[in-house]
Structures are given as C-alpha cells and as structure tokens.
Design a protein around this nucleic acid. Structure first.
Length: 430
RNA sequence: GGAGAGGUGGCAGAGUGGUCGAAUGUACCUGACUCGAAAUCAGGCGUAGGUGCAAGCCUACCGUGGGUUCGAAUCCCACCCUCUCCGCCA
C-alpha cells in the first residue's frame, strides 16, 4: 500500500510514476474521496469531542448530586448529526482503503521503463548453453522413462498437476533439500515451516488480495458453512513475510532472513493455453523461498545479495542462466524493483524464469503494520524482500533438459549426488 | 467434541457505568546524588489517525465484531484465541 500522505501531497508525481507501470491513476476519484473523507472525519471528531466534554459534565454534576437535565438536553441536540456522521464515516474510510489497496507499488528510480517483458533489461549471463550432438528432448519426453507422469496427475486432479514416482520423485526431493541446505547453511537464512492455509488478512498483507483473488485457491472448513474461506498459499513468501506482521522489531533484530520449502498453489487464471505442456506452469509446485525483513536503508543492498543467493543455486547445479531486471510494465504488484533469473532450457532454446527476487520496500510492511524501533526510538516501517531460491519444479525441468544424454539417461549434477544417495546417473526404465 | 478458567500498556497486575488511555509495581530513557557504579530521589515512557508552519489540540483503541447508554475496560449478544481436564485422532 502506498503512503496516503504521499497521495495527498504529491498526487501528480505518484500518478506519473504509476503511469510508467501502465496504470492510469484516477486522480479525480481520489480527490473526491479525500474531500469527502476530510470534511466528514473532522466533523465527526468535532462532534465526538463535544459529546465527550458534555458527558463529562454530566458525570461531574451527578457526582455532586446536582441537576444535569440542561446538559443532557445539549447532548441530545448533537445526537442525530453525530449518529449520521458515525454511520457514514466507516464506509467512506473503507472506500478510501479499498482504493489504496488496489494501487500497485511505485517503481524504484533504477527500474528500466517499459511496457511489457520486451522492455526488460538483461544484466548478466552465467555459463553457456551446452551443445548436443543429438536431437534434444524436452523434459516431458526425458521424464517419461524416469517416473514423471502427467497422465496420472491429470487423472487425479486435472490438467497442470503432475505425479512423480521413483527416481524423478527423489530428484525433486533432492533439489529441495539441496536448496534449503544451501540457503540455511551458507547464506544465513533461518529454516521455517509454515502453514499452507492462511486467513484473508494475510493475503492482503503481501498484496495478493483484494486484487488477485482469482489467482488463488481457497478452501472452506468441513461442516462449517459460516466460517469464512481460507486460502492456499501461492508462495511461502506469504507466510514468511507475514510472520512479522503487527510487530515492532528491535533494531538489532534486523535483518530477519527466513527460508522455507513449501508447496505453492496457483489457479493460473488467465493463463489458459500458456505452457500447457510439461511442468513449467502447474497448479501445484514446490519452491524454496527466501524472505528478508530489513532496515529501509539496506533494502537495495539486500536485493543484490538475495539475487546472488538464488544465483548460487544455479551455479552449483551448473545450469546456465541470465539475470534480467524487470521493466516498470512487467513487475509484480507489490514490487518496487525485481530481478528475474532465467535458466537455459535447451528444448525450448531459450531462457525461462526460474526465480524472481523483489524489493517491496515498505509496500507490504504498511499493509502488515510491520515495523522496527529506529535509532530515535520511533516505530518505522521495515522493508521486505522476497525471492525464489529456487522454484523446484522448474529446476527439475532444467536439470533433466540440460543434463540429458543421447541414450535417454540424465547425469546428476555433482552437488546433488549426495542427496541422491550416491546415484550419479538416472537410467530410464523403458 | 465435552467441562472449566482466562484474554487490560514491554512484562506483572488493579480497575465493575462517570475527569480511565487506564492505579500500582517492574523494565526502559533522562536528570540529580557518586570518582564511577549500585541504591535512592525527580521527571518521562503505548498505538493508529485527524488537524496545524509549529507548540499543540482533537478522535479512536482495554481479544474481535455488534448492542444498550448522555457516557462502556466495566452491562448485554455473537465470535476468536490461550490454558487445564476429558474424549477422539495422524
């Protein structure tokens, strides 16, 4: 959420910065809401102050045993207008809140301006795509003999679900374990296990709600028709970041660095027809997520660091990738700046997103009321960052495709061998 | 699921309709005393929001949401959470 003070004082600047994201700020709606809010709120508070003062008088008079009927009559005169104000104000404040909750974050000044992904800027490349002296197969073909079973996934749950058995299932687990060990053991993140089902407010905190409800899976508790719905997390960023909501952290607690391996559930509304083959785009996938809660002055430093943490995973696995700075038009709702990591997929002959690292600045912190005590002893909003380290399913795809052999086997990257119980090559069963 | 107890400021803990945003203790900060510290003494010390150049003034907040009342931490209703015991259960 943007700082409402900023909108009040510099609406044109805000509008210009949002325009770079392709969003037209409805300044007249804001102005109308703000005018209404200001007059109604000040009037309400004025009447409340009068009522409180008169009520105190009544208390004093009655305490002394004197007649209070005159004051009582004064208070009664406030009645109707006060009641009307107190009834109208919450609705107006909610409208204002809803307006603010629907606005995306302001892009950082260093973000390249662009309309869509074609405006993204490649920052660097690592590794070079391998050459194959045979026709490369995609992960669907390679995986078929290794236990990667899309038919069963579809039979159980429909499209965009995958069933894995045997060696591929183990490889999938090995990848997650390896990533988690790396981020906790070498990069200083605290391993977490979080709920996968969360309350509505939690999604408002990180920005999935109210605007992107269609992207979520939501659930109802058995037997209780009255209970509100809860949501399956679409990333553990949600539960990790919200772990500091409504908190005032001591200065020396920063930075908080958290990581978790979790499933992620996404309805992929609006993605019909995209990446329908294979496990690039699934309704359920695993991810090792990194989250940092940092001092506002350190957040851009932390972003660079976090990108490095994600890159390390790809480097240890020997997977070629590039780092891309997303442009204003391609960034996510909550982000002020985002780097994507794109891994080389030989079967697609292109780089595909495998990690996304974002600095959300105070955007989420303001929604969550996540603060720290600054050097002056004042409460100040933290900055939050999140990044994938990495998406496990897509990493599995990348390993299968980049390490495939002519005979259909797949060499296990050295870093994973210990996690595979010493297995160095996956041989197809068929 | 059943029975009971409870949710008040960083913590502890009072407050049962009227100058209560809340006693008191403790922690913390500032000052005094001290060579320094401890002890002691004095003062300060919640959050969000509105308004104002500012000092300040004002509003809301005692688990959450409603209600009664001129006035609610206090009374009423619903819900949530925590703890204890029992049942069930991976």
């Amino acid at each position: 959420m943007l700082d409402v003070q900023l909108l009040r004082s510099q609406i044109e600047t805000v509008a210009a910065r949002l325009a770079s994201r392709g969003l037209t700020l409805d300044t007249s709606t804001f102005a109308a809401l703000e005018d209404g809010r200001k007059s109604l709120q000040t009037r309400t508070q004025e009447l409340q102050a009068k009522r409180n003062a008169l009520s105190k008088q009544i208390g004093m008079l009655k305490g002394k045993g004197e007649d209070a009927s005159a004051v009582l009559a004064d208070v009664a005169r406030l009645g109707d207008e006060l009641k009307a104000c107190e009834q109208a104000l919450p609705g107006l404040l909610e409208k204002m809140e809803a307006f603010l909750l629907g606005l995306p974050n302001l892009p950082h000044e260093s973000v390249p301006v662009g309309e869509d992904e074609s405006g993204n800027v490649e920052v660097r490349r690592w590794g070079s795509p391998g050459s194959f002296d045979f026709e490369v197969r995609d992960h669907v073909e390679i995986g078929a003999g290794l236990g990667l079973d899309f038919d069963t996934g579809a039979r159980l749950s429909g499209s965009r679900f995958t069933f894995m058995r045997g060696k591929v299932a183990r490889l999938h687990r090995a990848l997650a374990q390896f990533m988690l060990d790396l981020q906790t053991g070498e990069h200083g993140y605290t391993e977490c296990y979080t709920p996968y089902i969360v309350n509505r407010d939690i999604l408002v905190g990180t920005g999935q709600l109210p605007k992107f409800r269609d992207d979520m899976f939501w659930v109802l508790r058995g037997g209780d028709e009255q209970a509100g719905e809860q949501y399956l997390i679409s990333t553990s960023e949600i539960s990790l970041t919200n772990s500091v909501r409504d908190q005032v952290l001591p200065l020396d607690a920063l930075p908080v660095k958290l990581t978790a391996h979790s499933p992620c559930f996404r309805s992929e509304a609006g993605s019909a027809g995209r990446d329908t083959r294979g496990m690039i785009r699934q309704h359920q996938f695993d991810k090792v997520e990194m989250v940092q809660i940092v001092h506002p002055e350190k957040s851009y430093e932390a972003l660079e660091e976090m990108v490095g943490h994600a890159e390390t995973v790809l480097q240890r696995l020997g997977l070629p990738y590039r780092v891309v700075a997303l442009c204003t038009g391609d960034m996510g709702f909550s982000a002020a700046k985002t780097y994507d990591l794109e891994v080389w997929l030989p079967a697609q002959n292109t780089y595909r997103e495998i990690s996304s690292c974002s600095n959300c600045e105070a955007f989420q912190a303001r929604r969550m009321q996540a603060r720290f005590k600054n050097v002056n002893g004042k409460n100040e909003l933290v900055h939050t960052l999140n990044g994938s380290g990495l998406a496990v399913g897509r990493t599995l795809v990348a390993v299968l495709e980049n390490y495939q052999q002519a005979d259909g086997s797949v060499v296990i990257p050295k870093a994973l061998v210990p996690y595979m119980g010493g297995i160095e090559v996956l041989e197809p069963a068929l």
